[in-house]
Simulated scan of single mutants.
Amino acid sequence: MNEAQPAWFTPPKTAAEKLADAQAAKIEQINAAYTEQVQPLIKDYPEIEQATWIAQESEARAYMAWHADQEGHTPATPVLDNILLGRNGDGGSETLQELSLAVLENADMFTRAQQLTGKRQRLVKQVREVTTQEALDGITW
């Protein structure tokens, strides 16, 4: 602190500090745009269910691979078995094959949507690498 400046004085931000603030704001904009596009794909699914998606997909792929040739033992599908119990309730008739196909259809859709994740990551990387405000302004979702 300069002796001539009062303790409450805050010096103006440097160009580097201004750019860092603008980069942080741009990353927030990119993340918001990403979320806006991805959210409709997952809006109907609670986070606790989303946490089981990897297990669901793995079990569904194993079951469908077994179903194709039915050699060996049926793979263990505890997550899908329990989902099926809940879906069928007392009188349902959905099969493990039907559930597996539904799970894989959703999994494939979410896999394709990961292009958006890659786009978000690419743009954030570009934001972090810019050295001018003009270059930063050229980065858009």
Results as ranks from 00 to 15, higher is better:
5 Q>K: 14
106 N>H: 13
97 Q>M: 12
83 I>G: 04
105 E>C: 06
140 T>I: 04
4 A>C: 10
52 T>W: 11
111 T>R: 15
126 Q>V: 00
128 R>P: 00
123 L>G: 02
113 A>I: 09
34 Y>N: 00
31 N>W: 09
118 G>I: 08
91 G>Q: 13
19 L>T: 04
136 L>A: 06
112 R>Y: 08
12 P>S: 11
61 R>H: 01
135 A>R: 05
128 R>V: 03
99 L>F: 03
17 E>Q: 15
48 I>R: 12
27 I>N: 02
81 D>Y: 03
2 N>K: 12
102 A>C: 03
54 I>E: 14
37 Q>I: 08
61 R>S: 03
19 L>M: 05
141 W>Q: 05
16 A>T: 12
43 K>L: 12
126 Q>Y: 03
32 A>G: 06
4 A>N: 15
85 L>N: 09
138 G>V: 00
62 A>M: 10
74 T>D: 07
2 N>V: 08
64 M>T: 08
62 A>F: 06
70 Q>F: 04
21 D>M: 07
58 S>L: 13
36 E>F: 13
93 S>M: 08
82 N>H: 09
26 K>R: 11
73 H>L: 13
30 I>S: 00
86 G>W: 05
26 K>C: 02
86 G>P: 00
98 E>G: 13
124 V>P: 03
17 E>C: 01
75 P>V: 06
124 V>G: 02
19 L>Y: 04
118 G>T: 05
134 E>M: 07
51 A>Q: 13
80 L>Q: 05
110 F>W: 12
3 E>W: 12
63 Y>D: 00
62 A>C: 05
96 L>I: 05
108 D>P: 11
89 G>Q: 05
31 N>A: 07
31 N>M: 10
139 I>C: 04
92 G>C: 04
103 V>C: 09
84 L>N: 09
137 D>S: 11
37 Q>T: 10
97 Q>H: 09
140 T>Y: 01
22 A>H: 06
123 L>C: 05
24 A>E: 14
13 K>E: 15
100 S>H: 02
103 V>T: 10
84 L>W: 06
38 V>W: 08
66 W>Q: 04
28 E>S: 11
121 Q>F: 11
76 A>R: 13
92 G>K: 06
24 A>G: 04
9 F>S: 01
13 K>L: 14
62 A>E: 06
136 L>Q: 05
109 M>L: 15
65 A>T: 15
11 P>N: 04
124 V>Y: 08
41 L>C: 07
65 A>G: 06
77 T>S: 09
34 Y>R: 01
13 K>N: 12
10 T>Y: 07
87 R>T: 05
46 P>Y: 01
141 W>L: 03
74 T>Y: 07
5 Q>D: 14
130 V>D: 03
50 Q>T: 06
138 G>W: 00
56 Q>H: 13
102 A>K: 15
3 E>G: 00
75 P>Q: 02
15 A>F: 08
8 W>H: 09
8 W>R: 10
79 V>L: 07
66 W>V: 10
94 E>I: 08
122 R>M: 13
75 P>F: 03
61 R>M: 02
